[in-house]
Amino acid sequence: MRRETFDENAVRLQTLLGEMGEVVVAAVRAASAALLERHPRLAERVIEGDPAIDDRRARIEALATETITIFAPVGPDMRAVVSAIQSAHELERVGDLAQHIAEAAHRRHPDPCVPEQAREILLELSTQVGAMMSKTVTVLRTRNVILALELESDDDRVDALHRDLFALMFGDTWTCGIPAAVDLTLLARFYERIADHAVALAERTVYVVTGRHPEALQL
């Protein structure tokens, strides 16, 4: 649907991104709860909800394409529209990763996908990643550059937890066997990728606002 002004379209794109982000954050948190609490119905809801996330991405792309076609923006305006397309794609990938986590939980039910020996690390990892995604959605909504720059240090904690998990699995105290280690390796990778997408979304927002990449800023 055609909008009357570029500014109206730009505001609508930002609103749609924020709304999509909230849905994706909910999917990540629900997938984590399904994983750690062995809740198959919750896992099913995450899996069933993925097409709706894909549809939101398509709506954002359609509006952004329409905006470029009608208004031919340049400079900062063009950055904002192109970034909306890229950010929607990043959010869709996070939704896919949440689906993968939910599928892992569902596949193993009624057996636990996370052995008790690794539960504490997975709980902290999932909590940290969920908080990062929530912060990222706030960045998308507000374009707060200072908040966006915090995501890099938040990601350092995810990397540390990732290393802690591998140290546990390859250490002398690991008693849960190879299949459990394979599951945990995949899960850790899913969470690490979600964190990477959160950082990428924040960095893209910094570029939209400032025209510079985060590493070039001195704040």
Score class of each variant (00 low, 15 high):
Glu4Met: 10
Glu4Asn: 05
Thr5Gln: 05
Thr5Asn: 07
Asp7Thr: 11
Asp7Pro: 00
Glu8His: 11
Asn9Met: 10
Asn9Trp: 00
Asn9Ala: 15
Asn9Val: 08
Asn9His: 06
Ala10Val: 08
Val11Arg: 15
Val11Ala: 14
Val11Gly: 05
Val11Pro: 00
Arg12Cys: 06
Leu13Gln: 05
Thr15Asn: 12
Leu16Ala: 15
Leu16Arg: 12
Leu16Asp: 14
Leu17His: 04
Leu17Asp: 06
Gly18Met: 03
Gly18Phe: 06
Glu19Pro: 00
Glu19Arg: 10
Gly21Met: 05
Glu22Ala: 13
Val23Gly: 08
Val24Ser: 07
Val24Thr: 11
Val24Gly: 05
Val25His: 09
Ala26Phe: 00
Ala26Val: 00
Ala27Ile: 01
Ala27Phe: 02
Ala27Ser: 14
Ala27Pro: 02
Val28Thr: 11
Val28Phe: 03
Val28His: 08
Val28Gln: 07
Arg29Thr: 11
Arg29Trp: 00
Ala30Val: 00
Ala31His: 05
Ala31Thr: 09
Ala31Gln: 08
Ser32Trp: 02
Ser32Arg: 05
Ser32Val: 03
Ser32Pro: 03
Ser32Asn: 03
Ala33Gln: 12
Ala33Thr: 14
Ala34Thr: 10
Ala34Gly: 13
Ala34Trp: 06
Leu35His: 06
Leu35Trp: 08
Leu36Arg: 07
Glu37Arg: 12
Glu37Asp: 15
Arg38Glu: 13
Arg38Asp: 13
Arg38Thr: 12
Arg38Cys: 10
Arg38His: 08
Arg38Val: 13
His39Met: 06
His39Tyr: 05
His39Glu: 15
His39Asp: 15
Pro40Cys: 09
Arg41Asp: 15
Arg41Phe: 06
Arg41Val: 14
Leu42Asn: 05
Leu42Ile: 01
Leu42Gln: 14
Ala43Asn: 09
Ala43Phe: 03
Ala43Tyr: 02
Glu44Val: 07
Glu44Ala: 11
Arg45Asn: 10
Val46Leu: 09
Ile47Thr: 07
Glu48Leu: 12
Glu48His: 10
Glu48Lys: 11
Glu48Cys: 01
Asp50Ala: 07
Asp50Glu: 15
Asp50Lys: 07
Pro51Ala: 13
Pro51Phe: 13
Ala52Tyr: 05
Ala52Trp: 03
Ala52Ile: 01
Ile53Asn: 03
Ile53Met: 06
Asp54Val: 02
Asp54Gly: 12
Asp55Lys: 09
Asp55Gly: 08
Arg56Trp: 11
Arg56Thr: 05
Arg56Pro: 01
Arg56Glu: 15
Ala58Ile: 03
Arg59Trp: 01
Arg59Tyr: 01
Arg59Cys: 01
Ile60Val: 13
Ile60Met: 03
Ile60Thr: 07
Glu61Tyr: 02
Glu61Met: 00
Glu61Thr: 10
Leu63Met: 04
Leu63Lys: 02
Thr65Ala: 14
Thr65Tyr: 04
